[in-house]
Design a protein around this nucleic acid. Structure first.
Length: 290
DNA sequence: AGCCAGGCTTTCT
DNA sequence: AGAAAGCCTGGC
């Protein structure tokens, strides 16, 4: 899938990625809310690691970690063992011209393998918020409850807080994150995790459908949030979150969803959802701004 | 049982 | 002012 070559500096090397991979599109795709633009690259927090990555050639990316760290942490995170070009190739223009166009514009999007706990809290917070507001709220929770870290180059950042750390916040401290009515959902999820009522090690052994049932037992978690956690946190690539944009495109293009061919794209409907989401959101944004 | 309206906090455009 | 990657509650 990719070749690697060192460029000399300690803990810095260049990786070649010969598949769909577009940092800008992934950053804007609404699946990750903590990526930070930094110069011509991105700083990406994940568990207790922080990666700086920037594009240095058509398929070449400089990363500030060791090869071992890239292989063990970041290759799975970016899902580089899978070919998204091949998934995109399943879409035929004659079968579905809208999805074909969406996938062409969305080429480079991947489904990241993110931390399921972080995804649960993040998508609880996302309810009725736009993306900039989600970023702000998630970062506030990290600052309030997460461990402070200092990267090799001195950059300070905060880990996403554990269930224990969130549960131990006072009402005042949680309220200062300004989550609005969602703060009681966040606290309930943290307390459920402490009681063992939600355990992602057990959840990862279940089918996508069983995951949805388990996740929806949590207060404040409905079908939309459950699908997002399943797709972005548990990497069930057939999960198909229906947000307002997807409901809109299913209604307007696929006759309420009847004409969208889920069977044809299984088990990758979640990838298709990302193409449709980006395409329709950007299309609408352009129309509004004109 | 299953559907639907109303309400909810805050931020961004 | 209206919309924003929704969900809960109560009433039919």
């Amino acid at each position: 899938m990719y070749n690697m070559k060192k460029v000399g500096m300690r803990g810095v090397f260049v990786i070649r990625i010969e598949d769909d991979f577009d940092l800008e599109k992934i950053a804007d795709s609404g699946q990750c809310f903590r990526w930070q633009r930094d110069g011509d690259g991105f700083r990406i927090p994940f568990r207790d690691s922080l990666l700086f990555i920037r594009k240095v050639g058509p398929q070449d990316y400089e990363v500030d970690c060791t090869e071992e760290e890239f292989d063990s942490i970041w290759r799975p995170y970016f899902d580089l063992v899978r070919s998204y070009r091949a998934i995109r190739g399943k879409i035929k223009k004659k079968d579905d011209p809208v999805l074909f166009e969406a996938a062409k514009l969305g080429q480079g999007i991947r489904i990241l393998k993110q931390d399921p706990w972080e995804m649960l809290i993040t998508f609880i917070i996302s309810q009725r918020k736009n993306i900039p507001a989600i970023r702000q709220a998630v970062e506030a929770v990290c600052r309030a409850a997460g461990k402070k870290k200092t990267a090799k180059d001195g950059t300070e950042w905060y880990m996403f807080p554990s269930a224990e750390e969130i549960a131990s916040l006072s009402d005042e401290a949680l309220a200062s994150c300004r989550l609005g009515y969602r703060d009681k959902y966040v606290r309930a999820a943290a307390e459920a995790a402490l009681r063992g009522e939600i355990d992602f090690r057990k959840l990862s052994a279940l089918s996508h459908e069983d995951c949805l049932v388990e996740l929806q037992k949590l207060y404040g978690v409905g079908i939309k949030v459950a699908q997002c956690v399943s797709l972005f946190g548990l990497h069930h690539l057939d999960a198909f979150p229906r947000d307002v944009w997807i409901l809109r495109v299913l209604d307007e293009v696929y006759d309420g969803g009847k004409n969208y061919r889920f069977d044809a794209y299984a088990p990758y409907n979640g990838v298709m959802q990302q193409y449709l989401f980006e395409y329709y959101r950007n299309k609408n944004a352009r129309e509004v701004s004109v």
